[in-house]
Design a binder for these strands. Sequence first.
DNA 1: CGCGGATCGTTACACTGTAACAGGCAGGGC
DNA 2: GCCCTGCCTGTTACAGTGTAACGATCCGCG
Lengths: 172, 172
Amino acid sequence: MDEHGTCGPHGHAHGQEAHGPARTADLVARAERLAQDLGLQFTTLRRRTLEVVAEEGRPLGAYDIAERLSAPGKRVAAVSVYRALDFLTEHGLVHRIASRNAFVPCEHGHGAGESAVFLICRSCGSVDETISAEIERSLDRTLAQAGFKPASRIVEIEGECGACQGQRDIRL
Amino acid sequence: MDEHGTCGPHGHAHGQEAHGPARTADLVARAERLAQDLGLQFTTLRRRTLEVVAEEGRPLGAYDIAERLSAPGKRVAAVSVYRALDFLTEHGLVHRIASRNAFVPCEHGHGAGESAVFLICRSCGSVDETISAEIERSLDRTLAQAGFKPASRIVEIEGECGACQGQRDIRL
DNA sequence: CGCGGATCGTTACACTGTAACAGGCAGGGC
DNA sequence: GCCCTGCCTGTTACAGTGTAACGATCCGCG
């Protein structure tokens, strides 16, 4: 569907968080605590799905995840991945990017209640997750004014991330 | 995919705008002016696609539109509808609801530059489009702070609209 | 008339997501 | 121990969403 990679699928830490194994370990630890506390089952499939999503620096489709989880002779069906993703999204460990039909790891420790803003770069395909109390407040005001009771919020901005703007400037 | 209809697919004017033929005529007129001004072709397929989307009180999938445009012996393929929808969304006449893979008519005269907030009701499936300068400001601030250059914005809130909350109160 | 550009019809295909059913596995009560 | 129950997973099948590619048609323009 797309190629990307202009500023590299891994390794660019634009902002606060670092991608890669460190974040993966954090997320897995959080998932284990959460499962412990709530009496849920953090199964192998769910853990491996979370790991695959966390390792990647860009949104992954369910079928991409299935492919990465598959080994010669041991194929993982997409439907299983969807079920694992249902679990992970339900508990705020990964997010679904509606405009891409793809999934990214949750980069904040926020409870499932809060809502995030996703910054999706068209050049490199990376996704940054930020939280703004100010945006939430103005959203809440608008919703209250419309008499609308929100259940879930989707805020996705497509554009060009800072790193890619810099790269483009150099090339010109 | 879903049934809806709890508060009726048509006829509930919650707020400012009225659905139905009046809005349809407005939109078509706007499209004709726009095509005139920019030297674009507002073809029959595009007009009929716009009409179908405008008449419906809820988001329509591309295949639903194709079905409504088809007559016995004169089938309209989904791919043609997609091309018409590309044209219509590009020029701000309809909006795509990313979380539903569906399309709604634009209910504001805003230029394609501004961004809208969509309130999607889980009970009746209706979609309200509102604009809030306050939300735009806080979004802009957050984006500027992140060094992110936005190209398009998606803000979709799922929940329960005022009308459906009222209905539910009555039934309880 | 010939040419170029845009639109549209058609086919084929890839990707996304879910329904339904069967097997496996762990824990709880007897 | 044994069965029963509930949850998770595997498998198949299918519905829904979206695009690529090619050809035909239409239309304005030189």
